[in-house]
Design a protein around this nucleic acid. Structure first.
Lengths: 327, 327
DNA sequence: ACACTCGCTGTAACCGATTACAGTCGGCTC
DNA sequence: GAGCCGACTGTAATCGGTTACAGCGAGTGT
């Protein structure tokens, strides 16, 4: 910048004003400055600008993982919203749980104007301890006191799926639930139980199979499912990845879906509509969760709102083929 | 930081040294500083540090789009490699072609230490004009003079797929190619033609259907395919997204794959193995392209190498069910 | 002719860290 | 006991922009 100023015969202040149109600059002077900058291929150093402006024009997006259709959709939605607002998206993931989460949080500070965090069972304390007070944070998929959140009603959605299965005449409906400590997983299980009670079906612990939201665990759970006697006629997986795994395992075992076993998932990841049979599932507006989270952060960043709100996005049952419902 | 220094009764220099372990600090002093920083919840401002260090510890990843399995994989690979090196990933996308590409390029400058760019037909000129000289850049999927690149041998891979089809006895093999100006698309078409020639099959312009790499265009191309008379017995789509679209359209038209029509794709996106029948396709190590691109940029950033190299990653034919080959 | 306004431009402070350099102090050597 | 060394700490320059403030000349009103 100094060099541009020198060659254009003006001061750096004038160069800055000319390039940002942030103050009065003589027509002739402006032209000369622009031309010189162009010739020198000068592009202002964003870091320096950010330091002075106390704003980075970027929002951090911290996810537990990047694998699978779910996170991809979140990222896509987030980037779309950020781009629309001329903000950037700084991506981070924390695979190894708390230690890496803390590390990621701390390295993000000062680089971002706000943060979207998704992490199973994130705690208010972790956030408070590792982030400067006042940094707008929106938690994805779980409310944390003092921060905004974008979530869905997991229990209601799971209840709707289970009710659908019951409505189709199934009396023994198994569940593959998510990892025990996970709040989403618990809520979905609760919804499942509620629907059973509602349909006057006795809850049965053996019907609740353990899973951890991975495709492999869905496959494993399907094996346990097959060992159940009498075998349940329906299987509800607490997310689509597990449902896809279960679908493969069931097929490998020679069972037809939905003729022999009705199968349902949760999330409606893009893949859900492509498998055969297409998966009946609870539709979660995943990309919208990403974009709304960004929007909420941005409102707080820009001071339009005191603090990001807690929003709950609607889900809906998507009936496809895997449950055998007449379409 | 000043506040921490004040409360701990030392200078900011000592605070900096204590927090970064970058110089000798008395045991007692260090303890007091750390404790004070903790109490004040002080986290150093990364922007300031970056300004002084002339490094941002982040690599920009600029993609044409974020939709679909392909880009998700690139992102995943890139983030993985960046995280391993303790770098961050700044995500950007340029949907609207050149204008937005230029804008993105310019806003990225000064925020990143290096750049991974993927864009159909990116030109050396655009890069040169909008980026400061010396910024390490790696182009994904197409070489640009003066920059590193990570690509695959599109023609060879397409040739292998086509040869596989020919080897299965197909004599009329149609192609759904990508958008005409796209270099990848052209190379794949060339490979297809080469394989035909190799198998002594006459090239026929009507067998080359237009597509644009989207699922919808695959569906549309399948319609044209069905109108061909006599109908070819095999359909090679220049990417998996189009193959998936074609698969749906063929099925909707009452045709069985592979019994009535052999279908092949290109890329091996995650979805390819999940559709029924699973897609025979050219496997492209997508996530590895992302990670290798980051690695190449990092080597340049760290000065281990003068400039990022041009690497070509191996592809391989993945035979699944959609072509009817005995497995 | 003088005071004032207004448009343009320059000087220098500042953002929040890092770090070169210099200074202090206790302990050792001879 | 003087000289030195090394460990520790502080002062201040610096990174590359932005911007408050001041200066300056030309035009305007009276």
């Amino acid at each position: 910048m100094r060099e541009v100023a020198r060659q254009a015969g003006v001061s750096v202040a004038t160069v800055s004003r000319a390039l940002n149109a942030s103050g009065p600059v003589g027509e002739e002077t402006r032209r000369r400055i622009l031309e010189t900058a162009e010739r020198l291929r000068y592009v202002p150093n964003r870091t320096a600008r950010n330091l002075k402006r106390v704003a980075t024009e970027t929002i951090g997006v911290l996810l537990p993982d990047l694998y699978g259709g779910f996170y991809s959709e979140v990222i896509r939605g987030a980037e779309r919203a950020a781009r629309a607002a001329r903000y950037h998206t700084l991506l981070a993931s924390a695979h190894d749980g708390l230690p890496e989460l803390v590390r990621a949080l701390r390295t993000l500070v000062g680089r971002v104007d706000g943060l979207v965090v998704m992490s199973p069972d994130i705690e208010a304390d972790v956030l408070r301890k590792n982030l400067p007070p006042g940094l707008p944070v929106v938690v994805l998929g779980g409310a944390v006191a003092g921060h905004g959140s974008v979530a869905i009603d997991n229990a209601a959605a799971a209840e709707a799926v289970t009710r659908h299965l019951a409505g189709l005449g199934h009396r023994r409906i198994a569940l593959v639930s998510g990892p025990a400590p996970n709040a989403d997983a618990r809520a979905r299980r609760d919804g499942y139980r509620r629907a059973l009670a509602e349909a006057d079906l006795a809850p049965d612990p053996v019907l609740e199979l353990a899973g951890d939201f991975t495709e492999a665990s869905g496959r494993a759970a399907a094996a346990s499912f097959l060992a159940l006697s009498p075998r349940p006629t329906a299987l509800f997986c607490a997310n689509d990845a597990m449902a896809v795994g279960a679908l493969q395992a069931l097929r490998d075992a020679g069972l037809r879906v939905p003729a022999d076993v009705a199968l349902a998932g949760f999330d409606d990841i893009p893949l859900a509509r492509y498998v055969t049979p297409a998966l009946t599932t609870a539709h979660v507006p995943i990309d919208e969760m990403g974009s709304q989270a960004i929007d909420a952060v941005l409102r707080a960043v820009r001071g339009d709102a005191p603090a990001p709100p807690a929003v709950t996005l609607p889900t809906r049952l998507v009936v496809r083929e895997s449950c055998g419902a007449r379409l």
